[in-house]
Simulated scan of single mutants.
Amino acid sequence: MAENTDGVVRVETDGHVARIVIDRPRKHNAITPPMARSLGESCAALDADEAVRIVIITGGGERAFSAGSDMNALGEITDLWAFRNRVEYAAVVRDMRKPVIASLRGWVLGGGLEIALGADIRIAGASAKLGAPEVTRGWVGGGGASQMLPRLVGYGQAMRLLLSGDTIDAAQALRIGLVEEVVEDADLDAHVMALAQRMASFSPIATQTVKAATRAALSMPLEAGIRHENELHVICMSDRGRHEGIAAFQEKRTAKFGE
């Protein structure tokens, strides 16, 4: 566990699933620079841990996933070059090789929304309220909202959120494609964990190449992306997990990938 005097980034593991908790509930899990560094270290460590196959990221308490950057810390910036080279906490989540599920309840704002956008799947509790209020403070977000939102919800919906600074509820977020599912808050943790454990039962080379291929579609032309996918397919064919998958099919049983 990495911590500072006012907030912690906790990592919990359950079999092949790891859970990152941004834990500063009395400040709506707002992220300070030390917490950003801790989140970066946690993401790097989980990416390197071969026992971990799926990562969940969530917020501590019941009121928020994260309200983004700590406003007091932003007000104390004096060295803009150092700020330019900061640990960008949404980027460290977005850059993970392993699949990431964002479990969202309460406020999901600013940099908190950008963390969620950096995940691969977003599942919201009914209490979730999502928004990008940076324009109301005098800036554009620096963690990817202007790039990821149009890819998820289209240009018009992205501009509505980014230029108004308004928040939307979980039902609206589901309708425009910003989240993939909405469940009752009381069921959120169990629902997300069940999904993560199911994904973690698959071959890690399969889940990571699925992510790599699909992420490539966000930036590659179609023909290049298809070629890239085929190369990843060939890599999977070289893995011993292929034989287990075929044997399980032939024997009409569930495949076991290194349990």
Rank of each mutant, 00 (worst) to 15 (best):
N4L: 05
V9Q: 08
R10W: 12
D14Q: 07
G15E: 09
H16W: 06
A18N: 01
R19M: 13
I20G: 00
V21F: 06
R24F: 01
R24T: 06
T32H: 05
P33W: 14
R37G: 08
G40Y: 02
G40M: 04
E41M: 11
A45H: 04
A45M: 11
L46Y: 02
L46W: 02
V52W: 02
V52F: 01
I57P: 00
A67I: 11
G68K: 01
N72I: 07
A73G: 04
D79N: 15
L80W: 14
W81D: 15
R84E: 15
E88K: 15
A90D: 03
A91H: 12
V93F: 01
P99G: 02
I101W: 00
S103T: 06
R105D: 08
R105G: 09
G111T: 04
G112N: 05
A116M: 10
I121V: 15
I121C: 09
I123F: 03
G125K: 02
K129N: 09
G131T: 08
A132T: 12
G138D: 10
W139Q: 10
G141S: 08
G143T: 05
L149S: 03
P150W: 11
L152D: 06
G156C: 07
M159N: 14
L162M: 11
G165F: 05
D166Q: 11
A171E: 08
R175I: 05
E180W: 04
E184M: 10
H191V: 05
Q197F: 04
S203P: 01
T207Q: 02
A213Y: 00
T214E: 13
R215H: 09
L218D: 14
M220N: 08
A224T: 11
R227A: 14
N230K: 09
E231V: 07
L232E: 05
I235C: 06
D239W: 08
F249N: 08
E251Y: 03
K252T: 12
A255G: 15
G258S: 14
G258D: 12
